[in-house]
């Protein structure tokens, strides 16, 4: 019994210590971001490997999610004779929820895990320590550019995801199921609000991008420097990012879309 309590306590302390380290780490990374201003090349290289190389999975997934939405939405709406509203349904679901959330999950799996593994391996092979001894701060040279690039990439990827999804919905709804072309677009235009829907969706992606990339770079930097440690850290990145994204999505949705 005492042993159990002790273990709980130790686990709790470990958790809070890690949380503290994660925040200190974040503060130091953010503080060092200013140094990147004269060296945009570092960030561009990371935008390429995190953003551009994630494009394919985002494009394909967006298309399929949109097609499924088109199909399911049509089946429901047609019972009420409201299939003209398919465009609104597809666009709103994507812009408000599915775009930000699904892209963030995909991004965590595709780019976040790679980030953790890369930084973790650099730690395990003493590359980070080597940089420190060369008076190069790995937080600024290695972590900073990756953090910034990841944070910037997700909103763009999510926008592309949503655009592809709308095309997918259009293809199924208008192309295959015969929804009226004009109604599809005009209803979408009149019912999707720039501030309430689009901006709120973008805010979500900015928050998710920040959190997912933070988790990924921290897990890599804080990992146990062995092959097993890197493997575990990579798994944790994906799991924790997914949980954080879903939980935050609930909170953000409650704050943003509760006009009732």
């Amino acid at each position: 019994m005492i042993e159990l309590l002790r273990r709980l306590g130790r686990g709790g302390i470990g958790f809070f210590q890690r949380l503290g380290r994660a925040h200190l780490f974040l503060a130091r990374v953010l503080w060092g971001l200013g140094e990147l201003y004269p060296r945009p090349g570092l960030v561009v290289a990371q935008l390429w490997s995190l953003g551009v190389l994630s494009l394919l999975i985002i494009l394909v997934s967006g298309l399929f999610v949109g097609m499924v939405l088109g199909l399911q939405g049509y089946n429901t709406l047609v019972d009420f004779g409201a299939e003209e509203s398919l465009g609104v349904l597809v666009a709103l679901s994507l812009v408000r929820e599915l775009g930000p959330v699904v892209s963030a999950l995909l991004f965590a799996g595709r780019a976040g895990s790679a980030l953790t593994a890369e930084i973790g391996l650099m730690k395990a092979t003493e590359q980070l320590a080597g940089m420190e001894m060369m008076a190069v701060d790995p937080l600024r040279r290695v972590v900073g550019p990756r953090f910034l690039a990841g944070w910037l990439s997700l909103p763009l990827l999510a926008a592309i995801f949503s655009a592809m999804g709308v095309l997918g919905g259009y293809f199924v709804g208008v192309g295959l199921l015969g929804v009226d072309d004009g109604a599809f677009w005009s209803q979408m235009q009149s019912k999707v609000d720039l501030r309430d829907d689009v901006v709120n969706g973008v805010i979500k992606t900015i928050v998710f991008g920040f959190v997912v990339t933070w988790i990924a770079v921290f897990e890599g930097y804080d990992c146990v420097p062995t092959s097993e440690g890197v493997g575990r850290a990579t798994t944790r990145t994906v799991v924790h990012s997914a949980l954080a994204v879903l939980a935050l999505d609930f909170v953000l949705t409650a704050l943003m879309f509760n006009e009732g």
């Binding site: 650099m122 092979t125 003493e126 590359q127 320590a129 080597g130 420190e132 001894m133 008076a135």
Partner: peptide, 17 residues
């Protein structure tokens, strides 16, 4: 600033891969 004046050869080499 001090480390800039020190060189260190790591046992593992620690080259940037």
């Amino acid at each position: 600033a001090l480390r800039r004046r020190m060189g260190m050869l790591f046992q593992s080499g620690a080259l940037l891969t």
